[in-house]
Design a protein around this nucleic acid. Structure first.
Lengths: 253, 253
DNA sequence: CTAGAAATAAGCAAATATGAGCAAATATGG
DNA sequence: CCATATTTGCTCATATTTGCTTATTTCTAG
């Protein structure tokens, strides 16, 4: 294996794992630790990675310092399972929309580097994530930056959406109830979500069980607008039946 | 087998194998290693392959993050001075636009956490940077993600700009000449730059001396559209005079 | 704050790869 | 047919890469 290939491999490993130790890399790539250290040295100088004592961490072209609480949910098993289920529903040639949210971010992280896939998003974190998958065409709806979740919302977003057509929308939520449907914290965000839902042929809500039965401040849409719901097993069978009666396909991951 | 055939064969091999060693090629094509090295040398100069010690790799497989980081370090001192000069021109209440580019990114990094300041941008890196300054209102024009510099360009960007009004635009550039004006590498990006310039009351070009006299592929606008130019001392007095005669205020940082 | 453990950078030597120079073989063009 | 140009393979001095060793730095537990 040549040097550039090794460097590329290290970058790939770092993209999926976020951090890796020198001994691990040495074993994985079957070269001495000295060589790995030399590799990491030049890669750091090229700003491709960030070195640490004992290894290296991923440095994406765009960096955020995720708040602690976010880090905690980042590795949530439920979210990952839901996200992987969602990814399986995506076909080559699709135009997929992902709105802001931790579960949709997880979907982006698990997307294959699929050719001929267009992702429409209003989440800055998802943009950063998809920057590493060069086969995917990324379309960003503009808008005003909402810093708490790094999403773009507001009239600009809504107007841009008016000109786009989406095959499948994956949307996260703060709350989902049978009576009130989707709800979220911010009214402006709610409106942008509504605009997205309006332009999507198929609306797929991704929500782990903690969201179901929860009610947030701003109404988005009633459950009549939802086509599919991906959630996890913890949801009660009675509720699933109720959703199904409304024509919603419920998928448990 | 003729030379061109050999080159073609090498390209084919690299297409399917991604990387190959000099001894392997020597055996496969039944010529000496010297000949292979000579072949690889010319093919590298023609940007058909990427050489490594011991062989060659497919150029496509290596082309990740093409040297943006390298550009970032270059001339960083000059850039910083230019950026700081630019920041001083910003007043409270302004609506400022920053397009993608390393100098404009430096401006964003040096912005004070000023109240009542709106920043319009198409650069994902600038969004990330300004996320840390909560007083600043950030408006993002949407668009298609151009990964090489993490900017949003294309028809969506241009249409969104049509509805906005900008007090001061700070724009970087690849090249700036007296005869051709602003030029950049990508035609679609050029169009989005043009759309920005059209909507700005005041167009301020930030360009260290390395950009001046340089000509890139795609024309953006002639120098008649430029109101101010912030650059550094290395630019010749004669050229400054010429720009001034065209009504451009030249500020040397 | 300190001592011990772990990681790193620097120096070194062996293995390998490279480029330049050269000569032979072949091709080109009058 | 001859003179010249190009291509090829060979040799060798030089350069690069790699793994090992060791001194130094950095981290961490007490």
């Amino acid at each position: 294996m040549f040097t550039v290939e090794r460097h590329k491999k290290i970058k790939e490993i770092l993209h999926s794992k976020k951090s890796v130790s020198v001994p691990d890399l040495s074993g994985l790539l079957d070269v001495s630790e000295s060589t790995i250290r030399r590799d990491l040295h030049v890669m750091e100088q090229n700003k491709l990675i960030q070195r640490t004592h004992g290894g290296a961490v991923n440095i994406d072209s765009v960096r955020f310092e995720p708040s602690l609480s976010e880090k905690e949910i980042q590795f949530s098993d439920e979210k990952l399972r839901v996200a992987k289920q969602a990814v399986q529903m995506i076909r080559e040639g699709d135009t997929v929309a992902l709105d802001g949210g931790t579960t949709t971010l997880e979907i982006a992280r698990n997307l294959p580097n699929m050719l001929n896939l267009t992702v429409v998003t209003n989440s800055v974190k998802i943009i950063a994530e998809l920057a590493n998958l060069p086969s995917i065409s990324v379309v960003v709806i503009g808008g005003n930056l909402r810093r708490v979740n790094m999403t773009l919302i507001g009239p600009i977003s809504n107007q841009t959406l008016g000109k786009l057509h989406i095959d499948k929308l994956f949307t996260g939520t703060i709350g989902l109830t049978y009576e009130e449907g989707l709800t979220t914290t911010d009214v402006i965000e709610a409106e942008t979500k509504r605009a997205m839902i309006k332009k999507a042929k198929e609306v797929i809500v991704v929500a782990d069980y903690s969201k179901i039965g929860k009610l947030a401040f701003a109404n988005v849409v009633s459950i009549n607008s939802i086509d599919k719901l991906i959630t996890n097993t913890s949801i009660s069978k009675r509720l699933v039946k109720k959703f199904q009666k409304k024509g919603i396909e419920v998928i448990t991951a």
